[in-house]
Amino acid sequence: MALLAAAALTVSCSGGGAPAGQQGKPGQAATTPQAPVIKITPEQGSTKVSPDKKVVVEAAGGVLDEVVVQAGAEQIEGKFNADKTRWISKSPLKPSTDYNVTAKSGVTQAASAFKTLKPEREFTVVDVTPNAKGEKIGVGAPIMVRFDQPIKDKASVEAALKVEAEKPVEGAWRWIDDTYVIYRTAKYWPAHQKIKFHADIEGVKGGKGLYGGKDHETTLRIGAKQISKIDTRKKMMYVYVDGKKKQTMRISAGMATTREYTTTSGVHLTMERGNPVRMISPGRKKGDPGYYDVMINHAVRISNSGEYVHAKNNVWAQGVRNVSHGCINSRPDQARWFHDTMQRGDVVDIVGTNRELEWNNGWGYWQMSFKQWKKGSALHGKA
């Protein structure tokens, strides 16, 4: 009897007969499970699809086994949700492009073909500074990016800007105007590394009828950690390279008889160099008191208000008196060394005067706290 009972149980579990009380009536067909239903967005035949729209594939009554989205030979990446009932594309679509979508869920297959719209206007990256060919930049260097069209949807565009460093540090973008955005780190870059900047803007919406054109990629190289310390009261300048003192320089700073002739205190960055550089007194014409028009050797710009570190053969004043119109002058041979050694974005930290460098005077971005800097980001806060 026990063996017969076991055999009966086995037959019941195999589905060979209906459980007691659930037998169908004579002639009634067995119930067939419904096939999954697949929905694809954008729908088949859609045209003028906005490139910032996502491709979404959903399965009802089953899981998605496969989703393929292609534009020609290029396949678009996407991500499934936890239970694989939904797939969504990761990146923006390309404008003016034909797309084909195929999906499978069990026995069900579905497809959709659609086309993205042609933008009224496109924007591109037209400049990344500092980024001259073969250039090494300083540890304080910002990444300054300009677009050729005004950007209204700043959050979407900013989200497409990526900075990948070999030795990462925290950083944030700040919008200066509708075409100009700057990346600054919270602390100085670690020296001797490569940084990759990506603007993955193709298809990104920048405003009404405005979409990103071609993506942009740039590799920047951080050189030595070169930091100069200047004390205008002691009339001295010390240059440190990778933590070691390389130069001790007697200097003469601004005479400070007026605000114009007062050297600014604060964290400056080296911006450019020239040999020689023509310097003309601002707002004065020939014959006016204080007028000058001179050629200065081995000059390194540190602000937009006319401040340079440069050569001048007035060694009688250097280390003794501040007699300049606001620049830092030093012995010609040492000024030449500084000129030849500088990298754009090197730090020049000046103390000792009552005139503070403005954050937007030249590359004075380190004059602003990082907390305040982030408020200029479209993603992190409001300015």
Rank of each mutant, 00 (worst) to 15 (best):
L3N: 07
A7S: 13
A8C: 10
S12Y: 10
G21H: 00
G24W: 04
G24N: 08
P26N: 09
Q28R: 13
V37M: 11
V37F: 13
P42N: 12
S46R: 08
V55T: 12
E58S: 12
A60N: 14
L64N: 03
D65T: 11
V68P: 09
V69W: 13
V69G: 10
E74A: 14
E74R: 14
E77N: 14
K79R: 12
R86E: 04
I88K: 15
P92F: 04
P95F: 03
N100L: 15
K104L: 13
A113N: 13
T116R: 01
L117K: 09
F123I: 07
T124P: 00
V126A: 04
N131S: 15
K133R: 07
M144F: 04
M144I: 12
V145M: 14
R146H: 14
R146M: 14
I151E: 05
K154N: 07
K154Y: 06
V157N: 04
A159K: 11
A159C: 01
E164T: 15
E164I: 15
K167F: 07
V169H: 03
V169Y: 03
E170C: 03
A172V: 05
W173R: 04
R174M: 10
W175Y: 11
D178M: 09
V181M: 05
R184Q: 10
T185S: 11
D200L: 15
I201F: 06
G207I: 06
G209R: 00
G213K: 01
H216S: 15
T218A: 12
T219N: 11
R221S: 11
G223D: 01
G223E: 00
Q226H: 08
K229D: 09
T232C: 12
R233T: 13
M236I: 10
Y238D: 14
V241R: 11
G243W: 02
K244N: 13
M249W: 02
R250G: 01
I251L: 06
M255E: 03
M255K: 14
T258Q: 02
T264N: 11
V267T: 13
L269M: 13
M271T: 05
K285T: 14
K285V: 13
P289G: 04
I296G: 00
H298I: 00
V300M: 08
R301D: 08
E307A: 10
E307Q: 09
N314M: 06
N314L: 05
W316M: 06
V323M: 12
C327A: 12
Q343Y: 04
G345K: 00
G352K: 05
E358L: 10
W359R: 02
F370R: 00
K371Y: 08
W373H: 05
